[in-house]
Design a protein around this nucleic acid. Structure first.
Lengths: 215, 215
DNA sequence: TTTTGGACGAAATTTCAGAAACGGTCGAAA
DNA sequence: TTTCGACCGTTTCTGAAATTTCGTCCAAAA
């Protein structure tokens, strides 16, 4: 019994492994059930013994990939001690793993985004203007003493990051409604950005807890 | 001479105005040059007297729309005095105008995004997990006193916003390289998020919460 | 001269019937 | 229990004819 279950899981693993490779290579549509079966050295209907259909295989592959990403992220987070470092770890692993995830999704993304093309050049031009606008604001804030000083390079980076971050809203995915719906949201974010998330204890601090980590 | 230029510009404005309406109504492909000419009450070749081709008309329409968006953004920014309020104004107008921009681009976006469908449900599920992870980090930070307190609702919102913001990286647009390339970028952002952008002068200050006018 | 309308050709798009391919099922064999 | 090949209904491809549409040209109107 137990041995059979293991055999099942082994087969499922093999299928997912090969399917992942093929999906990454040729995309979802151009990878047929027969391709997967042939690469497996098995008959086509064998796949249907282990999975309800093609959709489920694809979803399982993507799900597995995302689970891996989450696992690594959690791992990196657990290695950090302070919440600040945890956030850093979160973003850092996300950035590096996102690139690896694209091994799978680059074809998928290309399938999605091969239809725009025209509009992107325009968008890019206007993005650069937006970056300049934000940079101008920050510069003004620094000159007036409202903001702390920042290297020119970092200012560029930060402005750019804000514009890029804002692009997240452009993807028509439901969660964005939460942020998009209320003005309060945008203000809260800027409040946090400007005043910081650091606790009052540290801010008004008289030699409180974590003075080590801060630069 | 001057009068002719004005007449030219007037004609161009009329064309763009009508073209915008038609593009928003039927999309790029299904709007023909003859549709535009008919709606204009002019002959088709009139359009070619003012524009090299259909593509250029479309680009001009989109460009105009984006310029408008920028104009309103700048306007709102100029009404604010402090840099912080300027940032708020930037985000707020962006959010509200983005929705209006979609009047034009909703057909375009649908043309682009009608091909994904499948992957979004999965993505949504994992997005919610990511939100929970960030919320957990923030909660921990609050409990340890590292972060200042936050309403449950705001915490949810902030976590959600971070995930959404991070989605901006997923859009394959060149600017993201700048942020994607260096680890330093992600860290800098968190540094700013946690410590805030507020200047030391204001931070260490005792009574003075707000300087009224720009200093 | 400046501006317009309609005819015109080349190229792209649509149509649609027949063919091929594909996802998924089933009974039988190993 | 696990694998397989044959089979079915549907979707997708193909290719040629018909239609639409972009863009040009030139005569005519302003």
């Amino acid at each position: 019994m137990v041995g059979q279950i293991n055999k099942d899981e082994l087969m499922v693993r093999d299928i997912l492994s090969i399917a992942k490779k093929l999906f990454a290579q040729h995309g979802l549509k151009k990878t047929t059930m027969e391709d997967i079966a042939n690469a497996l050295g098995k008959g086509k209907s064998t796949l249907y013994y282990y999975f309800p259909g093609k959709t489920e295989i694809f979803e399982a592959v993507v799900d597995e990939e995302m689970r891996n990403l989450l696992r690594f992220t959690r791992q990196a987070i657990n290695l950090a001690t302070t919440a600040k470092d945890k956030l850093k770890a979160y973003f850092r692993t996300r950035v590096s793993l996102m690139e690896k995830l694209q091994n799978l999704s680059i074809v998928v993304y290309e399938e999605i985004f091969n239809h725009l093309g025209t509009i992107l050049k325009l968008k890019q031009k206007h993005d650069e203007i937006q970056i300049d606008i934000i940079k101008e604001i920050i510069k003004g804030g620094i000159q007036s003493g409202e903001f702390k000083e920042l290297l020119e390079k970092d200012m560029e980076l930060f402005s750019c990051a804000l514009v890029v971050a804002f692009r997240g809203l452009e993807l028509p995915i439901p969660v964005s409604k939460m942020v998009r719906s209320c003005d309060h949201g945008a203000d809260l974010l800027v409040d946090i950005m400007v005043d910081g998330m650091a606790g009052n204890g540290l801010k008004t601090g008289f030699g409180q807890k974590k003075m080590l980590a801060t630069s």
